[in-house]
Simulated assay, not measured.
Amino acid sequence: MMPDIYTVVASHQSPDRTEQFIVAADRSAASAMTGTDRATAVHLRLDPDARTCHLRMDSAVTYAWAGHWLVQRGADPRALAAYRTVPADPYNLGPEEEFNGLLDGGDYVFTRPGDGTTLRIENRIRRSGSRYVLLGRQMAYSYGFSGGEREANWALLLDRHPLATGRRFLLQLETIHLRSATYSIAEGGFPTKQEAEGVLRRIDPRAVAPMPATDPVTGLAPARQPVPPRTAGQAFRPLPPTGPARGR
C-alpha cells in the first residue's frame, strides 16, 4: 500500500497467513461536497504454490462499511473493530506546538469512535451481510459550515430485515467532531424514502437532525420499556369526599 495515500486503521490476518484484510483511511479523499468515500477496504490473498498474490480493493463511506465488505470476504469482524491508536502528535508539529483535535474535516484518518452507541452500530454494520442495500451517500456538510466544529456524511439504506416493516428506510448520519478527533453515528428509521430525504434536506450543522430512534444493536425500533407495576397504594386511591349538593 502507498503510505502517502492509505493509512491502516484496522486489520486481520488469516491463521495460515495467506490472507490479509485491511481497513484503511483514504487520505486522498478531499473534504468536499462530492461525497467522496473516506475509507478503503483491502483484501490481499497469497498463493504460495503459484507464487502469486491477488489484490482486491473497495471504497466505502466509513470505516464500518469498509469492514462490512471485508467480513463478506472472510475477515473476522472482532479484529476489524480493534482500531489502531492514533499517534499522540498526528501532524508532527513537535513538542513546542500544542494542538488538540483536527486541523481539517478531511483528516478522517485521525478519528475514532467516540461513544458506545457508535461502536454498537458499527458492529451491526460489519456483521449485517446482505441485509442492507445502499441507496445513496454523500457529505451532509463540510466543517466550514459549522465554524470548524464538525463535519458530517450520510448514508441512506434499504433495510430488508423481516421485522423492519414500516421502517424500511434507514438514515445514518456520521458526524466528525474536530475538537475531540472522534466521530459519532446517529440513525433513524423511516416508512418511506421521501420522509428520510426530507430529514436530509433539513440537516443543520449546529445540531443533529431529529430522527425516529433505532436500537443501535438491532437497527430496528427500540423495544418498548415495560410499564412498572403499580403498588397497592397506587392502584387504589379513594375518591375525594364531596360536599352536599346545593339546592337551586
Rank of each mutant, 00 (worst) to 15 (best):
H54G: 06
L44A: 10
Y132L: 11
Q172C: 07
E174R: 09
I22Y: 00
L93Q: 08
V8T: 11
L103T: 07
A232N: 10
M2W: 08
T7Y: 05
R112N: 01
R167I: 10
E98H: 14
A10E: 04
G114H: 13
G233D: 14
H68T: 04
M33F: 06
R168I: 13
F236P: 08
R167T: 11
L102M: 09
F145C: 02
D58L: 10
G136N: 02
T175G: 00
A232S: 09
R237F: 09
L200N: 02
P87Q: 12
R124C: 03
F110W: 14
A223E: 14
A235P: 09
A75I: 02
T214A: 03
V23F: 03
I22P: 00
D47N: 13
S31G: 14
V61K: 02
P222Y: 05
T192K: 00
Q72K: 09
I125L: 04
R224N: 11
E19Q: 14
E96V: 12
A30N: 05
T117M: 07
S31E: 15
G189K: 01
L80E: 01
F110P: 05
R51K: 12
T52A: 10
R38Q: 15
Y108W: 10
A29K: 00
R246H: 11
G74Q: 02
P222A: 04
I203A: 06
R246A: 11
M57V: 12
S28T: 13
C53P: 00
E97W: 14
A24I: 13
L93M: 06
L239S: 15
L200S: 01
A75T: 03
L178F: 00
S31N: 15
F145P: 01
R201K: 15
R179C: 06
